[in-house]
């Protein structure tokens, strides 16, 4: 048994609710609300290959966004001048297989599986990723400190993305 035995089902329910809420915001492209989920200082990263978490800053990633880059990215999506995101692909995603790896004080590390189906030009593509959220508890809820999305085949041939994972 891992630490799950010591993690209350209430916490798992709360965390699941938070991840599903985030997934819903991303599918609805409610990006302002998504930005408000962040605590501010951490990174939103899509690594390439199996770069360890501690070495991501010194490696090439698909994205390595601090707070400014996240805001710039959203501004780009919203301004309407980016042909790939005006209109963007539609997405429907599920987040499941949620595991709370660590719950200490106000810090949590949560792993999950994310499946995204995108549709553009009547063509659907499927993506799968292992996701790690580092969460902070605030005011009875959570904020995202870091989010690391490890796509399957991240070091292989991909397509371009007009949305977030």
């Amino acid at each position: 048994m891992n630490d799950m035995s010591r993690i209350s089902s209430t916490l798992l329910t709360d965390v699941t609710g938070f991840l599903w809420h985030e997934a819903d915001l991303l599918d609805r492209k409610d990006y302002d609300a998504w930005l408000a989920l962040w605590s501010g200082k951490g990174h939103y990263v899509l690594p390439i290959g199996d770069t360890p978490d501690a070495e991501l800053a010194d490696a090439l990633n698909l994205c390595y966004d601090n707070d400014k880059m996240r805001r710039d990215r959203i501004a780009r999506f919203q301004a309407g001048f980016s042909i790939s995101s005006a209109p963007p692909a539609e997405t429907i995603r599920t987040v499941s297989r949620i595991v709370i790896d660590l719950a200490e004080g106000d810090r949590l590390t949560v792993r999950s599986a994310e499946h995204v189906i995108e549709d553009k030009f009547g063509r659907q593509r499927v993506w799968a990723a292992n996701v790690t959220h580092r969460l902070v508890r605030v005011d009875g809820g959570f904020r995202i400190q870091d989010k690391i999305v490890r796509l399957l085949n991240s070091d292989g041939m991909l397509n371009s993305f007009s949305y977030l994972f």
């Binding site: 990633n61 698909l62 390595y64 371009s160 993305f161």
Partner: peptide
Amino acid sequence: RARLRLHEHFQGPMGFGSPDDAE
């Protein structure tokens, strides 16, 4: 590190440039 961040800014599947080129 600066070069890596500049590359990620424009290039690749999640860059601010390449996806628009691809489109």
